[in-house]
Structures are given as C-alpha cells and as structure tokens.
C-alpha cells in the first residue's frame, strides 16, 4: 500500500501526541515562533489533532526555579497559539521542593496545564519525588518521565539518573493512585522497559523517539495492552508516525493508541479553566 494511503489512519481518526516539545532549543527567554509554527504545519500535514508539549530545563540552570518558571511560561506561549490543539506539561526539578509544588499548582490552576514533566534530575523512585507524586495525585494529573534503558558510557556520564522501567515500576507500586507515563519506551532497550512495567497498570508509556525498531510496538501491546500506549514523536515525526503505521496491530488497537483514550479526561480539564 502506498504510504499516503496508509496515512488515512491519521487523517481519519483522532490523534493526540503526548510527548512533544515546542521552543525547546532557544534558551528560556525567547519563544521560538518558527519552531511553533513549523509544528502546527506538521500537525496539519500529518493529521495530528492535539499535542502535549513541555520544555525541560536540561543544562546547569536546572536547579534554579526561575528557569523552570521561564520554561513553563514559554510552554504557555505555545498553548496560547492554538488552545484547542496545544496543551502544556509543567516541568519542575524535584530538588526545588516547596517551590516546585507551587509551580505545579500555578501551571495547572492558572495556566491550564494538564500534567507534569520530569527529567533526569532524579530517578522516578527516589524519595525526593514523593511530594511531587502526591501533588499530582491531588490534582489528578499524569507525570511524564524522560526514561530509557541505555547501556552506553556517554549516557552513563551525561544522564546517570535517567529512569528506566524498573524505577517507574517501583514508584507505581508505592503510589498506585498516581498516573505515570514512561517516556519514549522505543529508544534504547525497549524490551527491558516494557517488561519492567508490565504488571503496573498505572504506568503508561509513549511510543515517541527517533528509533523505530521492529517489532517494538507489537511487543508492547502484547505485554501492556493498547490502552497503555500513548502516541507521540518527541520531535521525531516520521519515526513516531511511521512506527505505528508499520506495526502489525488491529485497526482498533492503532486507534486506541492514537487517541490516548484513557487520557482524554486530562485534556478535557483545560476547558474548565
């Protein structure tokens, strides 16, 4: 089948990207309008209805709350561009303690964000995360954690505290009322990641990321069920779209992943503000 024919799946069904970034690479002071408009153009081209975006603070500034606030304000700029299509996640550093909790409240209650984005500042099961998890349970919002099971020395040095499925499962068992998203399971050792969370129904995962190893999506659906997979790209648009098109799943399973059915209620909340 021609690839454009296959793309009807995206154009004819609701599609939500749960792991996206707008204005990620231009510091925390200036909104990258070119990137934002480019993202909207790609969404139209590929039939993507909604995206959920965040800006994690990834450099030496990440311990300072003012940069988290600045990053979240840029995400808010993105959501204002197309309020029905672009939704925000609030980035915080767990070491910011009470300030982080206040920032989550600000983002959710004042800016209409729909969840929290955590980065490789600490493992997901580190006790320093507990207040944040409890706050997310209280606000009934999901936590998207940057995750991967890597083996290479470079990542061990650059991001030693990156969570993998084991950290996600530990946190999920301790907080069964919390909702976790293990980010981009398809990169690195994807089988490790999905096996680790298989028995934790409150850990979801997204299929974003630049790798498109066959048959990662089928194996994840087999272990987790399609309802625990969310669609997304993390900026790797062709990989995110293509790997779902290529997966040997039922049409129904693909639609379930694309729509993020279990997560619709988080997006609905924004309308109430």
């Amino acid at each position: 089948m021609e690839i454009r024919e296959q793309m009807k799946l995206f154009h004819e069904n609701p599609v939500v990207g749960w792991h996206e970034h707008i204005s990620l690479y231009r510091g925390y002071e200036k909104f990258d309008m070119d990137n934002a408009l480019g993202t909207l153009k790609v969404m139209d081209e590929l039939g993507i209805d909604k995206i959920v975006t965040s800006i994690p603070v990834v450099d030496h500034k990440r311990g300072d709350i003012k940069y988290a606030i600045a990053a979240n304000n840029l995400t808010y700029e993105a959501t204002k561009l197309s309020p029905d299509r672009i939704f925000g996640l609030c980035y915080v550093h767990p070491g910011q303690h009470e300030l982080a909790l206040r920032e989550i409240e600000r983002c959710v209650n004042e800016l209409g964000f729909v969840g929290v984005k955590l980065y490789y500042d600490y493992f997901m099961d580190d006790p320093i995360q507990h207040p944040i998890i409890e706050k997310c349970i209280e606000l009934d919002i999901p936590i998207l954690m940057h995750s991967m099971k890597y083996y290479d020395e470079g990542n061990k040095l650059r991001q030693p505290l990156t969570s993998n499925g084991v950290h996600m499962a530990n946190a999920a068992r301790k907080f069964p009322d919390a909702t976790f998203i293990m980010g981009h399971f398809t990169i690195c050792d994807w089988k490790w990641s999905i096996k680790a969370i298989a028995d934790c129904p409150n850990v979801y995962t997204d299929i974003s990321g630049s790798n498109f190893d066959r048959p990662g999506i089928e194996e994840a659906v087999s272990l987790l069920g399609a309802n625990r997979l969310l669609w997304g790209t993390d900026g790797a648009w062709s990989a995110g779209v293509g790997k779902l098109l290529g997966a040997e799943l039922s049409e129904e399973d693909k639609k379930t992943i694309l729509s993020g059915r279990d997560f619709e209620r988080f997006l609905c909340r924004k309308k109430k503000i």
Partner: peptide, 14 residues
Amino acid sequence: PFNYMEPTLLRIAY
C-alpha cells in the same frame, strides 16, 4: 528487518 519501513517511506514521500 531491524526497522519498520514506514518512517523511511514517509521521509522520501513527504
């Protein structure tokens, strides 16, 4: 067979 084919097809088609 390492990869799904669709991502690379999308790149040349779009």
